[in-house]
Design a binder for these strands. Structure first.
Lengths: 331, 331
DNA sequence: ATGAAAGCGCTAACAT
DNA sequence: ATGTTAGCGCTTTCAT
């Protein structure tokens, strides 16, 4: 036994009276080992409580058995659900998932992503916060597959898995217009976030398709939390010419809008991007742009693995479809 | 440059015309290096696009800079929120978080936990699914700190961070009793889950304090999903002697109960363990046993780090307090 | 079927 | 302040 705690293959080899390589063969289940030898080695493994050091193994073999995931904000259930989906694929492939949250900070994203690359990961999934991702180009060149999730990356050739943001919000706003609404408020988080830009564009497309335009006074940006969204909606409803409908560009905004509209009992139609927990139990009916969150994570992980297996083909962007559904209306 | 892609310290040393160790010193920011030398090395680092291989570094130094987290079910927002909290601490400490989900499967938990230990992690947080954790005793002996989260472990001395399950449910049920309810249904997930056992015990304590006992016909187990809980509540309400109140032992059960009770407009008081998203927007008032999820994750991570720094002291169990709050009652 | 030796990329221990 | 050497625990290559 060595001075330090953990037994190594050398210890097992000594204990079993075989060579280091034989232990390695047995531990890794390689073929062409005498059954009696296998027995002997496994007995020593059990006796010493030996566990293979997979770090040392991958150092030598170059095998990468970890997927890195840099989310934009892990306190957001959206990214957590994605992480869960990626984790499931990782486990299925006997890989590990290392995750981190950039907190919507471009510098932190860069630091975390490069940190993960230092750990010799087999692939990296990034929800881009930074505007430029050329900091990853060297890693991509050197063979680390990168997949952008939810938002496109730039400055580096990599696959991307995105939602059909435009199509989803276009459909939701088009429906409000068909129902006769004209004063439709569009409520958004920061315009620096890609999905917000796309969803606003989708709303504009719906107006344009009817030969109409969105009233700039009804486009509200910067609603980063439900509380801020709630206050903004209160203000809108108290204005001289209030909206008759609101389109909320994400679920936090929808929740804030509900917090303002429900207690007032205001007669305002509500549509929102992203489903959320308990939306079915809302006391009033709303329309929601829904999609399969799990598909985002699963696709990203599988794209990553496929890319690892075959780095040759060009980079693709996959759009995950959305659909407009009814929620609430209980009681 | 080497045959394989990534440049190594040796490449940098050759390029800069210095020794390997000097590169190591510069890259790790060690003191006592000539500023001119630092410049020269950093220039080569930039030119070659060198990144330190942290796996190789920790192989040699023995430093463990990863926290492992085995959740019981990552698709549950509760564990996701905990993972987010742990991730935040990991980032703060410049560590990484490797996570996996046991899917409430004891064998998978064991496999995942030991897999993580193989990766030479600096500490392991486990939400126990298995009944016995002596499979971890060797790792603990060898110096890997282990913290059990949400449920106690057994067979191995390790810290645990638990909720005050009994106290929380006792308070909730006591309040229902004080309000005059006697036929109180207690709705639970599987009785094999520790928290369920504790929460049921808390409910019993509340009855016992009044010299009363819980009607066995009103104790329902095995409500693993909201849908199953919903159906069970429908059956209870249609029975000959229906409950006038329900205590739901977790948020999935509460949601199922709401799905049954709200559409019926039934006059049944509701109390539940665990807060949930949008609980504030419910059309009717319910009581919720609330607590700080972040605190669970933060405590676990900090206990782990403290344990890593000082393995000497005995193992402790920390109880995170709960409080009874109002939710819903909007419109 | 088994083993000896080299070396993955880095840091620790010891020079100088 | 800088360099040299050994070796972390394992896999690979090449013998036997």
């Amino acid at each position: 036994m060595r001075k330090t705690g953990r037994p190594t293959m050398i210890d097992v080899a000594a204990d079993a009276g075989v060579s280091l390589k034989t232990v390695s063969r047995v531990v890794n289940g390689e073929p062409n080992v005498d059954p009696a030898m296998i027995e002997r080695v496994l007995a020593s493994v059990g006796r010493l409580g030996y566990h293979r050091n997979s770090l040392a193994a991958s150092l030598r073999s170059g095998n990468r058995d970890t997927i890195g995931f840099v989310a934009a904000d892990l306190s957001n259930t959206f990214y957590m659900a994605i992480a869960a989906a990626v984790s499931a694929i990782a486990t299925r492939e006997r890989m590990h998932l290392v995750m981190a949250s950039s907190e919507e900070d471009a510098d932190l994203e860069r630091t975390l992503a490069l940190d993960l690359c230092q750990r010799q990961i087999g692939g990296l999934i990034v929800v881009p916060t930074a505007a430029d991702h050329s900091y990853l180009s060297r890693e991509v060149e050197l063979g680390t597959p990168v997949v952008f999730l939810d938002r496109p990356g730039s400055g580096v050739p990599a696959d991307a898995i995105l939602l059909d943001n435009r199509g989803g919000s276009r459909a939701a706003v088009a429906e409000l217009l068909e129902t006769g609404h004209r004063r439709i408020a569009v409520l958004l988080d920061s315009p620096e976030i890609y999905t917000m830009v796309e969803r606003l564009a989708g709303a504009r497309e719906a107006f344009a398709a009817q030969g109409l335009t969105l009233d700039p006074a009804l486009v509200v940006h910067g609603l980063h939390t439900p509380a801020v969204a709630r206050d903004a909606v209160h203000r809108l409803l108290e204005s001289a010419d209030p909206p008759t409908a609101v389109f909320c560009a994400n679920n936090r905004v929808t929740i804030g809008a509900l917090e303002a509209i429900l207690p007032r009992g205001a007669d305002v139609a509500i549509a929102g991007f992203d489903d959320f927990e308990l939306s079915r139990l809302l006391p009033r009916r709303i329309r929601v742009v829904d999609y399969d969150v799990t598909e985002l994570g699963t696709r990203a992980a599988e794209t990553l693995l496929a890319r690892g297996a075959d780095p040759a083909t060009g980079s693709h962007t996959h759009l995950v479809p959305t659909r407009l559904v009814d929620r609430g209306g209980v009681s």
